[in-house]
C-alpha cells in the first residue's frame, strides 16, 4: 500500500512516558476483525482512551487538546508483544508519521518501516529531554530530518542522530516498498526455490 514519502517532519509531539507499551494497548485484539485497512485510528489506544461506556478518559493524553502533532513519543520498549501490523496502521491512521522512543520491539519497528512510519530510536537521556521540552511547552516543535538522520528539539537546538539502514531510508524517502523490490527479482527467487529440499 502506498504511503507518503518521508523527508523532513517538523511537528509538535504527543508524549506517552510509559514503558513497555505493547501492541495490545495500541490496538486491542477485539478491533482486529476488519478485512480492510481502514478506520483503525479510531481505536488507537482504545482502552486507555475510552471508558467501558465509550466516554473519553479525560486523563489520557490523546484526549487532552493541548497535545497534538504528527510525532508520538513513547517510553522504552515501545511496541512489544503481538506482531499485529494493525498497531502500526492505527498509529498511521490517527495521523502520526513518526514514533520516538529509547528502544523499540523488533516486529513493531519493522512493521512501521514497511508502512511509512519512521521509528526514531534516541538515547534515554535525549528521550527525557524531549519529554521535558514538551512538559515546558506542549507545542514544542521537533524536527526529524531523515536525510541527515537527525532529530532536533527546535526550542533548545539540541539534537541527536539516529540509525536507519540505507535501504530502508531510500525506500521511505521515495515511497517505495519491499514488494516492488521483490517483484523485480522473481527470476533469482525461482532459481533459489528450485534447489530447496523442502
Amino acid at each position: 500500500m502506498a504511503y507518503d514519502k518521508f523527508t523532513i517532519l517538523k511537528s509538535s509531539a504527543v508524549p506517552l512516558p510509559i514503558e513497555n507499551v505493547d501492541t495490545d494497548q495500541i490496538i486491542p485484539a477485539r478491533f482486529l476483525k476488519a478485512t480492510k485497512r481502514e478506520g483503525f485510528g479510531d481505536n488507537l489506544f482504545r482502552d486507555w482512551r475510552y471508558n467501558g461506556d465509550d466516554t473519553p478518559k479525560q486523563d489520557f493524553v490523546l484526549n487532552n487538546p493541548i497535545y497534538s502533532g504528527k510525532i508520538l513519543v513513547g517510553g522504552r520498549n515501545f511496541g512489544s508483544g503481538s506482531s499485529r501490523e494493525h498497531a502500526a496502521w492505527a498509529i498511521y491512521d490517527y495521523g502520526f508519521r513518526c514514533v520516538v522512543s529509547s528502544f523499540f520491539a523488533d516486529i513493531f519497528k519493522g512493521n512501521s518501516l514497511n508502512i511509512g512510519i519512521l521509528p526514531v530510536q534516541v538515547s534515554p537521556e535525549f528521550l527525557n529531554k524531549i519529554f521535558e521540552a514538551i512538559e515546558a511547552d506542549p507545542n514544542a516543535q521537533l524536527e526529524v530530518n531523515l536525510q541527515e538522520q537527525k532529530i532536533t528539539i527546535l526550542a533548545t537546538g539540541e539534537s541527536e542522530s539516529f540509525d536507519i539502514n540505507g535501504y530502508k531510508k531510500h525506500n521511505l524517502m521515495n515511497g517505495f516498498d519491499d514488494i516492488d523490490y521483490l517483484q523485480a527479482m522473481k527470476g533469482n527467487i525461482k532459481e533459489f526455490e528450485a534447489e530447496r529440499i523442502f
Binding site: M1, S83, R84, E85, H86, A88, I107, G110, N111, N114, I115, N165, Y167, D177, D178, I179, Y181, L182, Q183, M185, K186, I189, E193
Partner: peptide, 20 residues
C-alpha cells in the same frame, strides 16, 4: 518467527521477506 501483514503479502507474492 512472526511477521506483519506487509510481510505476509511479500511471502505470498515472492516467498521471501526482507529481513536483517
Amino acid at each position: 518467527f512472526g511477521i506483519g501483514t506487509s510481510e505476509v503479502e511479500m511471502v505470498l507474492s515472492s516467498q521471501c521477506i526482507m529481513q536483517p
